[in-house]
Computed example of a mutant assay.
Amino acid sequence: MSFEDLPADWPQRSVADPVLAADLVDLVVGDTDRRDGALGLLLCRADGRLAQPVLVSTLGCPDIVHLLDLVLDQLPNLPGIDGLVLAIARPWGGLSDEDRALHQVALEVCRDHGLTLWGTYLATSTGVSPLPIAPELAPHVGGPDTAA
């Protein structure tokens, strides 16, 4: 699937659905972001619905891991934001050590601030793919309003 296949009611759906989350990453992270490098943060409400997408360019940034740490550390100050989907955008390639480090920072900052990390995705020119997450770290999903 891709953002072109998003269901009409996607704003009412939760990013707990990894297919929907990947499609939203595909929608939000454009070709220029993938070519130049960026971090996408799909800021979410407590029920996992998208509240606001944010893109931060990493073009020329010497320490992307530190940049992500700084940005995520501000999320608890945003009213109504209880979690996020992280997108790592770059032109091409498979999972790298830097991607793993970014994912780890996101896990730790979210845990420390009581935020839900709904997922981390790599967005390249060839598509969007999820980074694996240990089952014990996966967000708890339950109730009828989180179903896809």
Rank of each mutant, 00 (worst) to 15 (best):
L59I: 00
L78G: 07
T116V: 15
R100G: 02
A89Y: 09
D33P: 02
D9H: 14
D36M: 14
G142L: 07
A51N: 13
L67W: 03
F3P: 00
L137M: 08
A8L: 12
Y121C: 01
A123T: 03
L115M: 12
T146Q: 15
G114V: 08
H103T: 03
G127C: 06
P11K: 08
L67A: 10
L42C: 08
T116I: 11
D5I: 06
V128C: 04
L20N: 05
V15T: 10
A134Q: 10
R100V: 10
R111L: 08
R100S: 07
R90Q: 04
A87G: 13
D73F: 13
Q104S: 15
Q52S: 14
L78Y: 12
L43S: 07
A8C: 01
R35N: 08
T146A: 08
D63A: 15
G80T: 07
V85H: 05
G119N: 02
G60S: 11
D33Y: 01
G143K: 07
A8K: 13
V109Y: 00
A148W: 02
G30T: 03
D69W: 09
G119D: 00
A51L: 10
V128T: 06
D31P: 10
L20H: 09
L59H: 12
R45V: 02
P144V: 06
P132V: 00
P18W: 06
R90G: 04
L70S: 12
V85Y: 04
L72S: 00
A22G: 15
L6N: 06
E4Y: 12
D97W: 10
G83Q: 08
P11V: 10
G60V: 01
R49P: 05
L75S: 07
T58K: 14
W118R: 08
L20P: 00
D99H: 03
V54N: 13
D23E: 15
L39W: 08
D97E: 14
A148Y: 01
G114K: 09
W118V: 01
Q74N: 04
L86P: 07
A147F: 03
H140M: 06
P18Q: 11
V71S: 07
L75M: 14
V141R: 12
R100E: 10
P7C: 08
Q12P: 01
V19E: 14
L75A: 12
D5T: 15
G119K: 03
A138L: 05
G93Q: 10
A22M: 03
P11Y: 05
E4D: 12
T116W: 01
G114W: 07
A123Q: 05
G37L: 11
L137S: 11
G48Y: 13
L72R: 06
E4S: 14
L39F: 09
G114T: 05
D23L: 06
S96G: 08
G142V: 02
D69A: 13
G80N: 15
L72P: 07
T32V: 12
A16Q: 04
A106D: 05
E98L: 09
E136T: 04
P62N: 10
